[in-house]
Amino acid sequence: TRQYEGLDEAKAAVSALGEHIAREGLPDPITPLICGFAGYGNVFRGANEIIELLPVREIEPQEVAAVARSSDCAHDVIYKVVFKEEHTVEPISPEDHFDLQDYYDHPEKYRSRFHIYLPYLTLLVNCIYWEAKYPRLVTKADLKRLYGGAEQPRLRVIGDISCDIEGGMECTVKSTEPGDPVFVYDPFEDRAIDGFEGRGPVVLAVDILPSELPRDASVYFSTVLMKYVPAIAQADYTVPFEELALPPEIKRAIIVYQGKLTPNYRYIAKYLERNNK
């Protein structure tokens, strides 16, 4: 684990790596290096800010297979691909067509189709918001199929920034600590092996990533939070949650209210029960 004084120093190190890649190229065994991002919201924007410090060539999801199979791909770039909902899920009924609002309203009508991209990715960064009502992006069965072949799959690392335990990335069977940030998920034994050696993808599952840059995170979050402080201070917390008058950005972030999980976070209860057994 590397130690940096702050975000600027960390970004400088990534930029230096990018210069090395542009100058020397990537090793043949990991070329083309294709980095997939699932999601395109705030979490993605933070991750994208870092990868853009490297020599990047963006491709579309429909190009991933062709690039991975190409014998004429670039050695001095990292291929970046961003997946949105229309790429990751499909209607269960062949008579239906994908509609984003319908997916949000009726996720039970959809299933994941992300497995078609998995064989071609080197690195997958999960930035999606997930609840139990949505299909999983990657299942344990997907990884068992992927790693069940005779050859080593291209997929080496899963960076699960969202870090929902057995959630959108079902292989995230536990969270990790900054000092020991990764484990290998063995899809055949369904278990995590600490470190980065073993049969299966290396999974980064640190659920307290902002604390790794405490000064930068504190300055940013306090700056953003400042405009909401008056409303937070003036709110009446004796009323039911449905009547609580707070800005929607703050109200959506409330996990527990009056000693109970709020509606958007009730799915956490089953994980709490599991940990208490």
Rank of each mutant, 00 (worst) to 15 (best):
V43L: 12
D105H: 14
G41R: 04
R57Y: 13
H97Q: 13
S71A: 14
E85L: 14
V81W: 12
V81Y: 03
A66L: 03
L53E: 01
Q101I: 10
V67D: 00
R111L: 09
A65W: 01
Y110A: 02
F44R: 07
Q101V: 11
T88A: 10
S71Q: 09
D102F: 04
A66W: 01
N48R: 13
I116S: 14
V89R: 04
L53R: 06
E86L: 12
F98P: 04
Y110C: 04
Y110Q: 05
Q62D: 13
P94W: 06
N48G: 04
E52T: 08
G46C: 08
E95Q: 11
F44Y: 15
I59W: 05
K109E: 15
E108A: 13
F114G: 01
A65F: 08
I92K: 12
Q62I: 13
S70Y: 09
E86W: 07
S70V: 08
E85F: 14
D76L: 00
V64N: 00
V64S: 03
N48L: 14
T88Y: 02
H75F: 08
A47L: 08
D102I: 01
A47H: 12
E85S: 14
N42F: 10
R111N: 06
S112C: 13
V89C: 06
A74Y: 11
E60I: 07
A74E: 15
C73Y: 06
H87S: 04
H97I: 11
E63L: 00
E86N: 13
N42M: 12
H75W: 04
D76M: 02
D96T: 11
S70K: 10
C73R: 11
S93P: 05
E95T: 07
